[in-house]
Design a protein around this nucleic acid. Structure first.
Lengths: 325, 325
DNA sequence: TATTGCATTGAAACGCGTTTCATACATTAT
DNA sequence: ATAATGTATGAAACGCGTTTCAATGCAATA
C-alpha cells in the first residue's frame, strides 16, 4: 500500500506538500495540488490513520466506560453520547466493564496510552483515588454526582429525585415504603439509599432492610420482586423502582397474580421509558440521553479549546404523575 | 512523557531489549530485565499505543456498524459482540449510521485506514457493490443473510421465520394478516416482505399494502399502529410484528382502547424480549446476542489465524407459543 | 579440538503522516 | 528604490514501538 512518500515521488513534490494538499492547507499551487490528487488516485492511496494518530498525538476517539451496553439506562446515555459524537466527527471506543475494576482500569490505561483523547465514565466501581491517578492523562467526565471531588461531571441528582418521589408517596399517605435498585454500591445507589434513610427518618418511620430489593435491572427482575413482595409477612404499600423496565415487570407480573396497582401496591419509577405510559406508571423522567450529550459536549469542548464552561452540571428531572400511586 | 529510547538509555540497554522486556519475550538476562522494569517505574513510562498500532499494522479494534445503538434489536447484537470482544481483549469502535450511507462509508473507510482490524455490519443501506470495494481492506462480517454474495455472515433467516409465523397464523384460521416493520428497505425487511407476499399468495390471499405498517421500532410506535388499525375500514385479524417492543405497545395501547387480544387482533411478534412473557405475546425468539457473539468469533478467528471455519452460519429461531393468537 | 547450536544483545530499518524551519520569489507598502 | 509581506516549497526532524539481522559469547555434541 502506497504511503505519502510514494505519492510525493509520483507527483514530483515533497511530502510536506502532499500533506498540505491532503489536509486542505493553503499555499500550494494549483498544478501541484492537482498532481497530488492524481497521484493519490493512481496509486489508490489512503492515509494510515495510526500514523496520523501518532504524529498528532490525538485520535478523535472518546472512550465510554459503562457496565453494560444493552441496559436501558446506559443504552440511553450511550445514545446521547453517540449522537453528539457523530455531529463532531468523533468516534467512540466502548469499554464494557461489567463493574469489574480490572476492566475499568483498562479503560483508564487506554487513555494514558493515548488510545482515546478523553473518557466518559457512565458508572464505575473503582475508588476515587484510582480514577484520580489518570487525571493528567486526559479529560474525564463522569455521569454522576461527584460532590466536592475535582472532576468534570454531568449528573442527575439521585438523592434529590429519590427523596422527592418518597415525599410524594408519603404525601399520598404511604408509610411503608420499599425500593428496588440495580446494585447497592456505586455513587448513584448510595445517594438513593441515603435519600431513603434520611427521608423516612424525617417522618419518624424506621426503614426496613427487607424492603430493599437489590439486583433489579431488567423486566424479569420485576417478576422476582413481586413474588418476593407477596411472600413478605409485612408488605410495603409502595415501592420506589429505579427503572421503568423493572416497574413494568412488577406491574405486569403483579397483574397476573391479582395484585392491584396502586391499591395493593403503589409504584413510583424512574426513566419515563415509553413502556411506562400505557402502563400508567408514575415515573420520574431522567434525561439520560441529554446527560450523554452534555457529557460529550463538555469533554469535546475541553479537548478542542482547553476551556471548561461548567465543571459540574446538574440536570433537571421531570415528574410524570400517572396512576400507579 | 518518556519513550522507549529514554527507557533504554536509563536502563543501559538497547531499545530492542526494552521492547523484548515490555512484551515478555525470552532471551533477556534477568539483570537487564530488572533494569528495564526499574527504568519504567522511575520514568513512569507508558507505551504510546498509536506507535504500537502503526508498527504492528493492527489495532485489536473491531468496528461495529449499526444504525442505532439504543434499539433493543441492535443493542442485543452489540451486547453479544461486546461480551465476546471482552473475552479476547479486543475493543469495539462504534459506528452509528442512522442508516446514512455517508456514515456507513466512513466506517468502511476507517477499516481501509487501519483504524480497525475488521468490521461487523449489523445493518446497512449501502449497496453490495459499495461494500465489496472494501473486501481487501479487512474482514467484514454481516449480521444478515447475504445469499450467494461472497461475504462472511452470521444470520437469522427472516424469510423462513416470517413465513413460519405467517403459516402459524393461517393455521389458526387467519386470512387477513398485516405486519409491522422497522423500515421497508434493507435485506432483512425485504426478506420479510417477500415472505409475506409469497406465503399469502400460496393460500390465494391477496396481500394488502395498507396492512403493512412501516417505521415500527419502539413501544410508542405500537400506539400509532393500534390507532391506525382501528381506523381501518377493513381490519386485518392478525398482525405480525417485527419487534416485541412494538408488540408490547400494540397490546398495551390496544387494551386501553378495549381491543381484545387475540379475539379482535392476534399478534405474533419477534425477539422474545422479557416484556413479551408477562404480556403473553406469542413470539419468535431471535438469538440476537448469540448472533453478535458468533459474528465476533468469526472475525476474530479469521484475524488471528487467517482461517474461516464457516463462511455463512444460519442461527435457529425458537417459537414461543403464548396466548396472543 | 572442531563444530553446531542456543542464548543474548544492539544497530538500524521500518511503519507513516505532521510540522517546523529555512529558503526563494513575488508583491505591496514606504 | 528599499523594506516589509505574503506565497510557495522542500529537507529534515518528530512522534514511537517493533522487528529483522548480524554479531558475540558460551555450552554442548561430534
Amino acid at each position: 500500500m502506497a504511503n505519502i512518500r510514494e505519492i510525493a515521488k509520483e507527483a514530483g513534490v515533497s511530502v510536506a506538500t502532499v500533506s498540505r494538499v491532503l489536509n486542505g492547507y493553503p499555499y500550494v499551487r494549483e498544478e501541484k495540488r492537482n498532481a497530488v490528487w492524481e497521484a493519490v488516485e493512481k496509486l489508490n492511496y489512503t492515509k494510515n490513520i495510526n500514523a496520523v494518530h501518532l504524529a498528532k498525538g490525538k485520535t478523535s476517539i472518546i472512550g465510554v466506560m459503562l457496565p453494560y451496553v444493552n441496559h436501558p439506562y446506559f443504552g440511553a446515555i450511550l445514545e446521547g453520547i453517540s449522537k453528539e459524537a457523530l455531529r463532531h466527527r468523533y468516534h467512540l471506543l466502548l469499554f464494557q466493564t461489567n463493574y469489574d475494576v480490572e476492566k475499568e482500569l483498562e479503560a483508564l490505561e487506554m487513555m494514558r496510552m493515548k488510545q482515546v483523547d478523553g473518557l466518559i465514565i457512565c458508572s464505575h466501581v473503582a475508588g476515587w483515588n484510582v480514577i484520580e491517578e489518570y487525571k493528567e492523562d486526559g479529560p474525564i467526565v463522569l455521569c454522576e454526582n461527584v460532590g466536592d471531588k475535582d472532576f468534570l461531571s454531568v449528573y442527575i441528582d439521585h438523592y434529590e429525585s429519590f427523596a422527592k418521589a418518597l415525599r410524594y408517596l408519603i404525601r399520598k399517605g404511604h408509610r411503608h415504603i420499599g425500593y428496588c435498585i440495580g446494585r447497592t454500591t456505586g455513587t448513584n445507589s448510595k445517594a438513593r439509599e441515603t435519600a431513603y434513610y434520611d427521608t423516612l427518618r424525617q417522618i419518624g418511620v424506621e426503614p426496613r432492610k427487607e424492603w430493599i430489593f437489590d439486583h433489579c435491572l431488567y423486566v424479569e427482575d420485576g417478576k422476582r420482586v413481586i413474588h418476593q413482595w407477596m411472600d413478605l409477612s409485612e408488605k410495603p404499600s409502595a415501592l420506589l423502582v429505579s427503572s421503568d423496565q423493572v416497574a413494568a415487570g412488577i406491574v405486569l407480573w403483579g397483574r397476573k397474580e391479582g395484585v392491584k396497582i396502586p391499591d395493593d401496591l403503589a409504584i413510583v419509577s424512574f426513566d419515563n421509558h415509553p413502556i411506562s405510559e400505557p402502563l400508567q406508571i408514575t415515573t420520574m423522567e431522567l434525561p439520560l440521553a441529554l446527560m450523554g450529550t452534555k457529557a460529550f459536549r463538555l469533554i469535546y469542548h475541553y479537548i478542542e479549546t482547553g476551556n471548561i464552561v461548567k465543571k459540574k452540571e446538574k440536570l433537571p428531572v421531570r415528574f410524570m404523575e400517572r396512576s400507579s400511586v
